[in-house]
Design a binder for these strands. Structure first.
Length: 656
DNA sequence: TCACGGAATATTTTT
DNA sequence: TATTCCGTGA
C-alpha cells in the first residue's frame, strides 16, 4: 500500500499532535496501523479515544476513508466515533464505513445477493417475526408428530439461535441447556429444516442468517471475498469480547488479503454470552493471527481511586481472565456505598432523595444514571420519579418495534415492500374482524397467485371469505398505489387506517396512538421504504420517555435509567445500581450455572465501572421470590464480602 | 371457522 | 404477572 512508505518516514508531519494527546500505550495502538493488533482495554482506559484517533490517523496518512471499516456494537457507537474523528481532523472521517456486524452483513448481502442465489430485496425477520413463523410451522409439525405438549415458540427460537451462533448441533444445545426437551429433539429438527426452507422461499433472513450468509459468501466465493477484502484495507472492531464464533470467522476471512486488523476489547466486560458471544475469541485472537501485537491499556481515566479499588476487588473473583490491574491518578474522597432499604419503595425513595441532593450540589441530571439488571426493576422508581417530576429517559429493555401496535403498522408497510412476507400478511389480515388463520391463508394464497405485489389484494375475489372489513384494507392499498406518496405520507395513511382497530383492541389506545405518531416522525427521515424497514429491524429505537417512544433525546436534561447491557461503553458522574440483591443480581436464572454466574459478575463489573465520582449500590431487604421459594435478604454475592474499608454500608431511612 | 375465557407456564439481557 | 396455549361455544 502506498501509505506505508509515508508512514515509515519518521519526519512526516501530522496535524493532530498524537504524542501530546495520547499516553504511550494508546499512541502505540494508534500508530501501529499495519498487521494484526489486539488491544486489551480496561474499563475507562480510553478505548473509544484510541479508536477515534486511529481512524483520524489513518485518514491523515492518506488512506481513503471508504477503505476503512469500523465495526462496533451499535450503529450509534460507530457514528459517535466517526463524528469525534471528524472534529479532530476533518469531515473525511464521516465517510469511513461503520456499523454493526449485522448492518455490514446486510449491506454486503444486498450487494452480492446474486452470488448466493438470494433475492436482494429480502426482508429481515426480527425476533418477534421469527417466533411468529416458527409458531406457524410448529403447529403443522406438532400435529403431524402427534405430540401433546411442545416447547413454546420463544424457547424454540432460542434453541435455534444458540445452535447457530455457537456453531454446535441442535441436539447438543438441547442436551446441554434444555434437558427436559430431549424427547422433542427430532420434531425440533424438523421445525428447524422447515423454518430454513420457508425463509428461503419467502425472502426472509433472520438476524443469525445475516451473519451465516455473509460467512458463506466469504467462504464459497473466493473472488467475492477478495473483492470485499481489498475494498476494506483497514478493519477495526470494537467490543471484541462480545463477538461470537461466526463473527470471528467472518473477520478472519474478511482481512485475509492484508491482515490489517485491530480488535479492541476487555474480557472482563464480556456480557453477551446468552447471545452466543464467546470471550475466548479475544483470548484466541493471537493464535488466529500469528504475529499479533498485543497492547494493554491499564490507566483508567474515568473513575476515582475508591471506585477503582472496589471494582478491582470485585473482578478478582472472576476465574478466567487476562490479568490486568487498572490504576488511576484521580484521587477521590467518597467511598462507594452499599445501602440496605427495607423494601422496594424505600429503595426508590432513597434514590429519588439522593438524586435531588446531587442536583442541589450542582450535578447535572444527565450526569446521573440508575442501572439495573432487568428492565422491569425500575418500574417502582419510575412512579416515584414521575411523582417528584424528575425528568428521565429509559434505555433498553422494552422494545417499541416489538410492541403489537407498532408491529401492526410495520406489517402493512412490509407487505408493500415484500409481498411474499407471509408473516406480515397474516398479521394484517388477522386484525380484520371475522378473519382467522384459515381465511388469512386463503387470501394470502390468492394474492400470491395474482403475482403483482401487494396490489394483488385489489383484484382478489374477496368473496372467498365472509369478512366485510377487507374492503377497507383494499381501499388503503388502492390509495397508496394510486399516487406516489412520500414514505411518511404512506405511513400516515396506514396509521389512519389502523386507528379504529387500535381503539377497539386496546384500552390504552391514546398512549399507543402517540407511539404511532412518533413512528411516522421517524419515517420522515427516510426516503425509501426498504431502508426504513431494515433500520427498524437492525437498529430499532430503544429509548423511551414516560412510556412512549422517544425519538430525540435532545432538549431537557434527563436522568438516565438503563439496563446494564444498554449502559455498556457509557459513563456518568454518579451511578446508582438498584436491586443489588442476591437473587436479582445475579439473576435467579443464573444461580445454578457457574459460567452464567461468572457472566453476572462481569455484568456487575460493567455497571460499577460506569461511575466517575459516586457509586451507590442499593437493595431492598427481605423480598420473597416465588419461583425460588426463598426469601432474598442478602446483598449481591459480588459485593457482600467486600470489606467496609472499601465499601461503606448504610441503611436507608426517610431522614437521610 | 372465529372469538373468547380460563388454565398453564415461564419469567433477563439484544443484534 | 403477563403472555401464551387450548378447549369450548357460537
Amino acid at each position: 500500500m502506498q501509505p506505508i512508505s509515508s508512514l515509515s518516514d519518521g519526519r512526516r508531519r501530522f496535524r493532530i499532535p498524537y504524542e501530546a494527546e495520547l499516553n504511550t500505550s494508546q499512541l502505540e495502538a494508534v500508530t501501529t496501523t499495519e498487521g494484526p493488533l489486539l488491544v486489551i482495554a480496561g474499563a475507562g482506559s480510553g478505548k473509544t479515544r484510541t479508536l477515534t484517533y486511529r481512524v483520524a490517523r489513518l485518514v491523515e496518512m492518506g488512506v481513503s476513508p471508504a477503505q476503512i471499516l469500523l465495526l462496533t456494537f451499535t450503529r450509534k457507537a460507530a457514528q459517535q466515533m466517526l463524528q469525534r474523528a471528524s472534529s479532530l481532523l476533518d469531515s473525511r472521517c464521516e465517510k469511513v464505513a461503520g456499523g454493526t456486524f449485522h448492518s455490514f452483513a446486510n449491506t454486503m448481502l444486498r450487494r452480492y445477493a446474486s452470488q448466493l442465489e438470494l433475492d436482494p430485496g429480502f426482508s429481515i425477520l426480527d425476533r418477534v417475526d421469527a417466533e411468529a413463523l416458527i409458531n406457524l410451522l410448529r403447529k403443522e409439525i406438532a400435529a403431524r408428530v402427534g405430540q401433546r405438549s411442545f416447547p413454546r415458540k420463544g424457547t424454540i427460537a432460542a434453541i435455534f439461535s444458540r445452535s447457530i451462533n455457537k456453531i454446535i448441533p441442535l441436539e447438543d444445545v438441547v442436551y446441554d441447556d434444555y434437558p427436559h426437551l430431549i424427547d422433542s429433539v427430532e420434531a425440533l429438527n424438523d421445525i428447524f429444516l422447515a423454518y430454513r426452507k420457508h425463509k428461503r422461499q419467502h425472502n426472509f433472513l433472520d438476524f443469525d442468517d445475516l451473519l451465516v450468509f455473509l460467512r458463506q459468501l466469504l467462504t464459497t466465493r473466493p473472488d467475492v471475498r477478495q473483492r470485499i477484502s481489498s475494498a476494506y484495507q483497514y478493519v477495526m472492531v470494537d467490543e471484541y469480547q462480545d463477538t461470537n464464533k461466526i463473527q470471528a470467522d467472518i473477520l478472519y476471512r474478511l482481512v485475509g488479503e492484508h491482515r490489517n486488523i485491530m480488535v479492541v476489547g476487555d474480557d472482563s466486560q464480556s456480557i453477551y454470552a446468552f447471545r452466543g458471544a464467546n470471550f475466548k475469541n479475544i483470548m484466541q485472537f493471537p493464535q488466529a493471527f500469528p504475529g499479533t501485537r498485543i497492547i494493554t491499556l491499564e490507566e483508567n481515566y474515568r473513575s476515582v481511586q475508591p471506585i477503582l479499588d472496589l471494582t478491582n476487588v470485585m473482578i478478582e473473583q472472576a476465574r478466567e481472565k487476562y490479568s490486568k490491574k487498572l490504576f488511576t491518578r484521580r484521587p477521590g474522597l467518597a467511598k462507594p456505598v452499599l445501602v440496605e432499604a427495607s423494601d422496594e419503595n424505600s429503595q426508590s425513595l432513597f434514590v429519588v432523595d439522593r438524586i435531588k441532593q446531587l442536583q442541589r450540589q450542582g450535578v447535572a441530571l444527565d450526569q446521573i444514571a440508575v442501572l439495573f439488571r432487568a428492565s422491569f426493576h425500575s418500574f417502582d422508581l419510575e412512579i416515584e420519579l414521575n411523582r417528584e417530576e424528575i425528568p428521565f429517559i429509559k434505555v433498553g429493555g422494552f422494545k417499541f418495534v416489538e410492541s403489537a401496535h407498532i408491529k401492526d403498522v410495520l406489517a402493512h408497510l412490509r407487505v408493500i415492500a415484500n409481498c411474499e412476507d407471509r408473516i406480515s400478511w397474516y398479521r394484517i389480515l388477522l386484525l380484520i374482524e371475522k378473519i382467522g388463520p384459515s381465511s388469512a391463508q386463503k387470501i394470502y394464497e390468492a394474492v400470491r397467485r395474482q403475482a403483482c405485489g401487494y396490489t394483488g389484494l385489489l383484484t382478489v375475489d374477496t368473496k372467498i371469505v365472509r369478512a366485510p372489513g377487507i374492503k377497507r384494507l383494499q381501499e388503503l392499498f388502492a390509495g397508496i398505489d394510486a399516487q406516489p406518496l412520500s414514505l411518511a405520507a404512506t405511513g400516515q395513511a396506514v396509521v389512519k387506517y389502523y386507528l379504529p382497530i387500535l381503539k377497539d383492541t386496546y384500552d390504552d389506545h391514546p398512549k399507543r396512538a402517540k407511539d404511532l405518531e412518533q413512528l411516522v416522525a421517524i419515517m420522515e427521515r427516510y426516503r425509501d421504504l426498504d431502508h426504513f424497514l431494515t433500520d427498524m429491524a437492525l437498529e430499532p429505537p430503544n429509548t423511551s420517555i414516560g412510556d412512549t417512544l422517544a425519538v430525540d433525546a435532545a432538549g431537557q436534561q434527563r436522568l438516565v435509567l438503563s439496563t446494564v447491557h444498554s449502559a455498556k461503553g457509557l459513563e456518568w458522574h454518579s451511578v446508582f445500581i438498584i436491586w443489588a440483591l442476591d437473587g436479582r443480581f445475579p439473576s435467579p436464572h443464573a444461580l445454578y450455572k457457574e459460567a452464567e454466574i461468572e457472566e453476572e459478575l462481569r455484568l456487575m463489573y460493567v455497571a460499577a465501572t460506569r461511575a466517575r465520582e459516586n457509586l451507590t449500590f442499593i437493595y431492598p431487604d427481605g423480598v420473597y421470590d416465588r419461583s425460588l421459594g426463598v426469601l432474598l435478604n442478602r446483598p449481591s454475592r459480588f459485593i457482600d464480602m467486600i470489606p467496609e474499608s472499601i465499601l461503606q454500608k448504610q441503611t436507608a431511612g426517610y431522614w437521610e
